[in-house]
Design a protein around this nucleic acid. Structure first.
Length: 484
RNA sequence: CGGGGUGUAGCGCAGCCCGGUUAGCGCAUCUGGUUUGGGACCAGAGGGUCGCAGGUUCGAAUCCUGCCACCCCGACCA
């Protein structure tokens, strides 16, 4: 494991052409290649949301301050990290000091740049919901949000980030809880199938719960440096927001009741997760399902006659692979050597690289290289197109298995406080340990070790034990880790 | 907001302690040529208000004061 992990990671991101720090504190520029990864993530999630009955909509970036004050715990949770718009105009300074904010253009009510959209959305829902016939509302929005964090980290915690946020309204508590569970399952399925990232689904403890939620479900993933990353959350909001925004409906029996709510979100942090879960010393390793370029073809030649012949063969291979729905790049730029291109596409994480030269043309062969194992084989061109789809599947599986085994090896079942500290200091990773269920104990553990309860896993067997900290009885183990 | 560190070419850095020619190196860029099966080589060229503002001095990237920005470690968090 790398000691200078964060340094290595920052270098990688910059070298990999993914992002660089902008002049604005804690914001990121997502360069085209990084954005292409986000577009793949978006496309897959959007498909899954629609398959589960959701539709997309868009709400304003600006939220009047008064909206925020309506839900008490929500304000408390977000107040400390809001960017606020106070004026709407600039003017030339009379003393010639350039452009200044026009003091006459002060807004009567300040506008908050959304850190999340519950408040403005529930303000709208009030007008959309009168009867049980208006329910459920199942809306998702793709948006940017701003959270003025004290400390930022590229991809993992930037001041502005892109995400999707789902906001649903339901007639019954049961239906809302079912929705909350459904969406955490969608996230888990996405993480495991598309991102090749094994995750643990579970409940958040009261301390870690979303501001304004009754219950928060989360998926937690383990990064290669032994730290946990919260990869997606789904919240059961109860009737908190409905009450705060006075959203009532008439049910089938004619009785008036408050609406039940959920919200769920997943952000560009996932790009960071992808990088930190799968990368090696040569750069990114992208799972084929999310790779903007799945196959790259690099020609090797000396003369322009050779290149012409290679162009012909390569373009045909490219077309044949594209017919299978694959994304293929043929890189015959002559300003870089093949060796340079090999290294560059490895840095970018392209799953499969094909190299073809005069020698191959003679033998009717082609070199196939895998990014995940860095292995190479030479196969007959005739068999190539039939070979690639299966190879991509295999790579996808292999990346998942590698991450799964890593997590398995780094999940420690500990029973004593000494052991707990030893594991944290020497190995890191996930710790499954008993906990007495109190916020007090959780807080003490956090202060002493920086480890928090990542989640109370859904699928953990009942097991009598004693709290690793207080020694009080516990009915099951929970997941501890140091996290991002 | 507390503790530490860094600001010198597009990027990465040396020079600063101990002030003194025209501020240097690697990568990248441009031109010409030779190259191309794992990050090519040779020759030449362009590119700098040394973070900003004061001060000390005959003379400041270098010393002093103030400010600003960024990074790392905490508190906060997706």
């Amino acid at each position: 494991m790398e000691d200078n992990y964060s340094q290595w990671y920052n270098d990688l991101v910059i070298k990999a052409d993914l992002a660089e720090n902008s002049a604005v504190r804690g914001c990121m520029i997502i360069k085209p290649y990084g954005y292409a990864i986000w577009e793949k993530i978006q496309a897959e999630l959007d498909r899954m949301f629609k398959a589960t009955g959701h539709v997309n909509a868009y709400f304003p970036l600006f939220i009047p301050k008064s909206f925020f004050t309506k839900e008490a715990s929500h304000v408390e949770g977000f107040a400390k990290e809001c960017a606020v718009v106070t004026h709407y105009r600039l003017k030339n300074d009379e003393n010639g000091k350039g452009i200044i904010v026009d003091p006459d253009a002060k807004l009567e009510e300040e506008l908050i740049i959304r850190p999340t959209s519950e408040t403005i959305i529930w303000h709208s829902y009030k007008n959309w919901i009168q009867s049980y016939r208006d329910l459920p509302i199942l809306i998702n929005q793709w948006a940017n949000v701003v959270r003025w964090e004290m400390r930022t980290r590229l991809f993992l915690r930037t001041a502005e980030f892109l995400w999707q946020e789902g906001h649903t309204a339901h007639a019954t508590k049961e239906e809302a809880i079912e929705e909350t569970e459904k969406m955490i399952n969608v996230y888990a399925e996405f993480a495991e199938n598309s991102m090749a990232l094994p995750v643990i689904k579970g409940y958040k403890s009261a301390n870690e719960r979303f501001a304004g939620a009754i219950d928060t479900y989360a998926i937690e993933a383990l990064m290669q440096d032994g730290k946990a990353l919260q990869a997606g959350t789904s919240h059961f909001l109860g009737q908190n927001f409905a009450k705060a925004f006075d959203v009532q409906f008439t049910d089938k029996t004619g009785k008036l009741d408050y609406v039940w709510a959920t919200s769920w979100g997943l952000s560009t942090r996932m790009i960071g997760a992808l990088i930190m879960a799968h990368s090696d010393n040569k750069g990114l390793v992208l799972p084929p399902k999310l790779a903007p370029i799945q196959v790259v073809i690099v020609p090797i030649y000396k003369t322009s006659e050779q290149l012409e012949k290679l162009n012909e063969t390569s373009e045909k291979i490219k077309k044949d692979l594209e017919k299978l729905g694959l994304s293929v790049k043929y890189d015959n730029r002559d300003n870089n050597t093949p060796g340079w291109k090999f290294a560059d596409y490895e840095l970018k994480g392209v799953p499969v690289r094909l190299a073809i030269g005069p020698r191959d043309l003679e033998n009717k062969t082609i070199e196939v290289a895998r990014r995940d194992t860095l292995s190479k084989e030479t196969i007959s061109i005739d068999k190539l197109v039939g070979h690639i789809p299966g190879l991509l599947d295999e790579i996808q599986k292999n990346i998942y298995n590698k991450a799964f085994n890593f997590r398995k090896e780094n999940t420690h079942y500990v029973n004593t406080w000494t052991e707990f500290n030893e594991v944290l200091d020497n190995k890191g990773g996930f710790i499954m340990a008993h906990w007495d269920g109190t916020s007090e104990t959780e807080e003490k553990i956090k202060v002493e070790t920086k480890a928090t309860i990542r989640c109370i896993p859904f699928e953990t067997p009942d097991e009598a034990g004693k709290c690793v900290y207080s020694g009080k009885p516990s009915g099951r183990r929970v997941l501890f880790a140091r996290s991002y």
